[in-house]
Design a protein around this nucleic acid. Sequence first.
DNA 1: GTGGTCTAGACCACT
DNA 2: GTGGTCTAGACCACA
Lengths: 118, 118, 118, 118
Amino acid sequence: MEINWNNKEPIYLQLRDRLVALIMDGVLQEGDALPSVRQISSEQRINPVTVSKAIQMLVDDQLVEKKRGLGMYVVDGAKNKLATEERNKFLTEEWPQIAERIDRLGLELDDLLGKSTD
Amino acid sequence: MEINWNNKEPIYLQLRDRLVALIMDGVLQEGDALPSVRQISSEQRINPVTVSKAIQMLVDDQLVEKKRGLGMYVVDGAKNKLATEERNKFLTEEWPQIAERIDRLGLELDDLLGKSTD
Amino acid sequence: MEINWNNKEPIYLQLRDRLVALIMDGVLQEGDALPSVRQISSEQRINPVTVSKAIQMLVDDQLVEKKRGLGMYVVDGAKNKLATEERNKFLTEEWPQIAERIDRLGLELDDLLGKSTD
Amino acid sequence: MEINWNNKEPIYLQLRDRLVALIMDGVLQEGDALPSVRQISSEQRINPVTVSKAIQMLVDDQLVEKKRGLGMYVVDGAKNKLATEERNKFLTEEWPQIAERIDRLGLELDDLLGKSTD
DNA sequence: GTGGTCTAGACCACT
DNA sequence: GTGGTCTAGACCACA
């Protein structure tokens, strides 16, 4: 879970994506507590405000819920929700641009996928 | 050659990509002069400084060269250079991340081909 | 760190050279933050855009890196990089022309040492 | 006698320096006619106005004179004049900057000159 | 005509 | 607070 400080991708989005990946990969199970803002902040040397911003996005997407006085917890069904929502988002918003780029470069999708699925 | 003003992508990058596409598609042949900064500026309603920034990137990539007092010209071999370099850049820098993403989302070839699988 | 406003050399290049000198002389250590764009801008009475242009050159040369929202930092190894690269560049690109010039003008070592030979 | 179109050095200065070199090297003897503006212009593919500008500089320096209806001729004493004037100009205007640069790079003048005089 | 530089001032996203 | 982008308008050297 490393942050790329040179990247054009904002820190809070990088962090959000990391957390999403942890949930999808089952490292963070449903019902589990997220690491605290303070903990993430000190471990990753990220400003607490930035960490909060990332977690707040998960709350807004109803993937995580706050238990008062206890912390943030992964909600039931979060993994399934992610499986469909992230999928749709990728297919409609990101993939079209990528596909056009692949086309322009004269590359074949089959060959590309072969590399990662073989 | 149209600019998307609502896009968060900076104008000078959009413009650079347009020019690269024109070279790759052969609309701008090697040895041809690029449209002048002022011409692009007035046609597209973009500030000349912004246009210059886009073209300067092409100069830095040695796709275009300045002839003092005359204008900017597509260098010999620009098309080939683009064909190989852009491709390599995509395969080594961008595709690995995308592939990991596709993998995690559990997407298949059919999903990506533009026809939903029902 | 002073700018010569009468010089035909562009301000952003003068500024870049100043910053390079500060790194080579160790005034700016590796890991240190550069003075912020706004700070340089107000102290030296230079437009922020012009200052950015100078610093961006250092980023392109990988002497400096951006930490988003925090500022620009001298990268590890910047000093060594400068010591070798600037030297090579001078020896291969600039010195040959100068040497030819000296030769044609019939100048001797004594002439160049700053004490006229009478 | 080649022109570098990418160079930051203006064409008319490059051309002027070429002509000066031809005189100093004796290719153009005193009393010889310079190639005509038209000839240089077509051979080097330089705009005639630019060629005139270069030659006019030589006239201003009294290295060349116009013979009405005949063309431009190298004046008597041009070679000597160049030997001293170019020399002084170099020593007072250009060399100090170069010397400082050599110093900053930690290079030794002796070593550098050894390369070109051995 | 060409591109290059600079300013003043505005607005943006990010930390 | 940080840097990045853009505009409008000016001025310059060069061909």
